[in-house]
Amino acid sequence: MALNTPQITPTKKITVRAIGEELPRGDYQRCPQCDMLFSLPEINSHQSAYCPRCQAKIRDGRDWSLTRLAAMAFTMLLLMPFAWGEPLLHIWLLGIRIDANVMQGIWQMTKQGDAITGSMVFFCVIGAPLILVTSIAYLWFGNRLGMNLRPVLLMLERLKEWVMLDIYLVGIGVASIKVQDYAHIQAGVGLFSFVALVILTTVTLSHLNVEELWERFYPQRPATRRDEKLRVCLGCHFTGYPDQRGRCPRCHIPLRLRRRHSLQKCWAALLASIVLLLPANLLPISIIYLNGGRQEDTILSGIMSLASSNIAVAGIVFIASILVPFTKVIVMFTLLLSIHFKCQQGLRTRILLLRMVTWIGRWSMLDLFVISLTMSLINRDQILAFTMGPAAFYFGAAVILTILAVEWLDSRLLWDAHESGNARFDD
Rank of each mutant, 00 (worst) to 15 (best):
W363S: 01
I96N: 02
L377F: 07
E157M: 13
A392L: 03
D99C: 12
L79D: 03
E419K: 07
G105L: 01
L197V: 04
P325C: 06
Y50R: 07
S308F: 09
N4G: 14
M147N: 02
L3G: 14
G105C: 05
Q55L: 14
Y289W: 11
E86N: 06
I383E: 01
L197K: 01
Q345V: 11
H340V: 11
S305C: 06
I378R: 00
M72K: 04
R221M: 12
V232K: 09
M375Y: 02
G240F: 06
H184I: 07
Q29G: 10
I285W: 00
L94P: 00
S48L: 15
E42H: 09
Y241G: 09
R226E: 04
T334E: 12
R247C: 09
T334N: 11
G240N: 06
S286A: 07
T9I: 15
L149R: 10
I126G: 06
V189E: 07
A175W: 01
I299D: 03
P249H: 07
Q29W: 13
E42Q: 10
P284M: 05
T134N: 13
H237W: 08
S193T: 03
H261D: 06
C233W: 00
G171V: 06
K111Q: 09
Q295L: 09
W214C: 15
W359M: 13
D427M: 15
R144K: 13
R250A: 04
R362N: 03
L257S: 04
R355V: 12
G293V: 07
F318G: 08
E42S: 12
G61A: 12
H237L: 07
V179A: 14
L78H: 06
L88G: 04
F38V: 07
V163E: 10
A83C: 05
E22G: 08
R258V: 04
G113S: 10
T387G: 02
Q180S: 14
E161C: 15
A385R: 06
S420P: 15
L414F: 08
L79A: 05
I303R: 00
R258D: 06
I126W: 04
L413Y: 11
V357Y: 00
L205I: 15
A423T: 14
A312R: 15
A73N: 12
L153N: 04
S376M: 13
R53C: 14
I19Y: 07
L77M: 09
E21K: 09
Q47D: 14
Q108T: 12
V210Q: 15
R68Q: 06
I96K: 04
L230A: 10
L257I: 05
G240Y: 08
L323I: 12
L197N: 02
I360R: 00
P41M: 10
R260I: 04
L88V: 06
S193W: 02
T298Y: 06
G20F: 09
P32A: 11
T201Y: 05
V152Y: 00
L197M: 08
M80D: 09
M375I: 09
T9K: 15
C233K: 00
